[in-house]
Every structure is written in structure tokens, then in C-alpha cells.
């Protein structure tokens, strides 16, 4: 129950990272100390109010103004998406270059007598293709951008 409570609060806290960590730590201590004094989790929750109420009190007392928070989230989202686009472009360019090389290779690549199977073996070696890395990075950045956008929407709903 208290884990669920903590998660619900964490989801709604709009605080600078350090402050947010502190609030969540103190919330944990509130439950632990109460248990030590024979209070049940339900009693603590009755005092704290709903996770929405507790988080709102913290945001109101300690948070940066909602407008600033929204603006920052939006900016971060845009930045992440731009980086995603750049990485995707780089990945595609890399694939395209590989493709060009592959097309050209049969005519050029007979150097040293390399035949078909050797070439396929090389290009199929995992972890070597930078395009895969670029795609992965792009996916991570896209996820980060989406997270910021979702946070914006959640903030605005309140």
C-alpha cells in the first residue's frame, strides 16, 4: 500500500530533481516512523491525504511555477525530437553508404580475391554496424522526448 502511495506521489511531483528525491525519502521515513510508533499505514495515509493532495501540497509549497515547468518540458521534448531526427538521418545516411558500397563491391571488391560469402559474413557481424547503434540512440531519445510530452499533458490536466 505504501509503495503504491509513494509511486502515485512520485508520478505527480513537479519538483527539481534533488528536492523530489528528498520528498520521496521523507515520505518513506514518515511511514517507517509511524510503523515504529504502532501506527498503521492506513492511519498515515489518512493523515497525508490522497497522493494527489500530498503531491499538490508539495508542488504548491516547493515547486517551480507550473508555467516554467511546462515550458521547460516542452523545450526538452523539442530538443530530444530534433536529436532523434538527426540521428535517424545519420543512420539512414550510413545505411545508404553501406548500400552504395555493397552495390559497388562486386565490381571493385575482388581485391584479394574476396568472394561473396566473405563479404556477407563481414556485414552481418553484430555490433559493428554503426547504423544499428544510431537507430538505438534515436529510439532512446524519442522515448525521452515522449516522456517529456506526456509529463506536459499530465501537468496541464490538473
Amino acid at each position: 500500500m505504501k509503495e503504491q502511495y509513494g509511486k502515485e506521489v512520485a508520478r505527480r511531483l513537479l519538483l527539481p530533481r534533488a528536492k523530489r528525491k528528498e520528498v520521496l525519502r521523507d515520505l518513506e521515513e514518515a511511514f517507517a516512523s509511524a510503523a515504529e510508533h504502532g501506527e498503521s499505514e492506513q492511519q498515515v495515509i489518512d493523515r497525508l491525504g490522497t497522493p494527489e493532495e500530498f503531491a499538490a501540497a508539495m508542488n504548491e509549497q516547493l515547486g517551480v511555477p507550473q508555467e516554467c515547468f511546462l515550458r521547460r518540458s516542452r523545450r526538452l521534448a523539442v530538443l530530444f525530437f530534433v536529436l532523434t531526427a538527426l540521428l535517424l538521418a545519420a543512420a539512414v545516411a550510413d545505411l545508404w553508404r553501406d548500400h552504395l558500397l555493397e552495390v559497388r563491391l562486386p565490381s571493385v571488391g575482388i581485391i584479394g580475391g574476396a568472394d561473396g560469402p566473405t563479404h556477407i559474413l563481414l556485414s552481418a557481424a553484430p555490433g559493428i554496424d554503426p547504423a544499428i547503434l544510431l537507430f538505438l540512440l534515436a529510439a532512446i531519445l524519442a522515448a525521452a522526448g515522449l516522456r517529456q510530452l506526456l509529463r506536459c499533458r499530465r501537468t496541464r490536466k490538473k
Partner: peptide, 22 residues
């Protein structure tokens, strides 16, 4: 924290209002 809140509530909940973590 917990001690502060219990002490506040023991002494003055009806006058100061019920103290909460929030």
C-alpha cells in the same frame, strides 16, 4: 519529522489545526 508532528498534534491539534506531513 514524525516526533515533531505527533508533538504538535498532542499539544495543539484543536487550536493549531491538525498537523500533517504535507
Amino acid at each position: 519529522g514524525y516526533e515533531i508532528i505527533s508533538e504538535l498534534n498532542r499539544r495543539g491539534a484543536d487550536i493549531l489545526g491538525y498537523a500533517r506531513e504535507g
